[in-house]
Amino acid sequence: MRRFVLPAVFSTIFLALLLVAGCTAEQVVEQELPPEETDQTGLLIFTANGEEFIREGFVCKDGWSLSFDHAYVTLASVSAFQTDPPFETDLGWEFEDLIQGRVDLGGVLTVDLASPDADPAVVGEAEAVPSGRYNAIYWEMVRATGGPADGFVVLLVGTAEKNGETVDFEIGLDREVAYLGGEYVGDERKGILQAGGSATVEMTFHFDHLFGDFDEDPDDDINMEALGFGPMAALAVDGTLAVSLSDLESMLAADDFELLVAVMTHLAHVGEGHALAAFLE
């Protein structure tokens, strides 16, 4: 009797164990260990970027080949924000309710976007700031109060060439503008600061919006909304052009000047994402 009953008992127990093990194998949940007490801060680096257009030069929409010795921009009131839900420019300027944290970069700072080292240019750094996602950034372009770009928010210095004609230019924009952008859009993620690490937030300037891009279709938005260099080249005297935005108001055709002013409102981006813009005066 026992020689028959015992196999039944053991086979049952074996099967039960086998089944229990089989059923629970994929239900094991790893226990999360309590987080260690660590420093939840990191380094946030503020940068400005004129991209290859400024560093390497380019051919603008009307065929002028532009190269830049300097492209000064003067920045102030720069702040990076952690927002939740994430800020998007469609929401407009009223975004205070979204702010979960902010890092301010004090001072008025001028950077040269044409410098070979400006890939991108470091504007400033903030140490030991809370980790998290810095997905909104506000900044102002203000007139420099000294230095090579004194009196201008943007000063472009360089040379334009077309069909053997050369124009050395200094073009100064002197209207102050505020910008507000969302999360960085580009081939890498920026603004995501992990504890103990570093992250970058970027103010990006697309100067092809000012001059257009010969490589794009003439009917493309980038060219339809750009001034180009031709209208300003026509103002050069003996191959030299030194003008400010204020000068250009009386020197350019009204439509061209209107186009130039409008460019200042879509010059700034965060990577490839457009930023909101508003003149400060």
């Binding site: 839900p85 998007e88 490839e272 994402g273």
Partner: peptide
């Protein structure tokens, strides 16, 4: 959660969630 979708072309792009 909040998925992010980024579309870019020729220097222009946007990110939606």
């Amino acid at each position: 959660g909040l998925w992010e979708i980024q579309v870019r072309l020729a220097g222009h792009g946007d990110l939606i969630r």
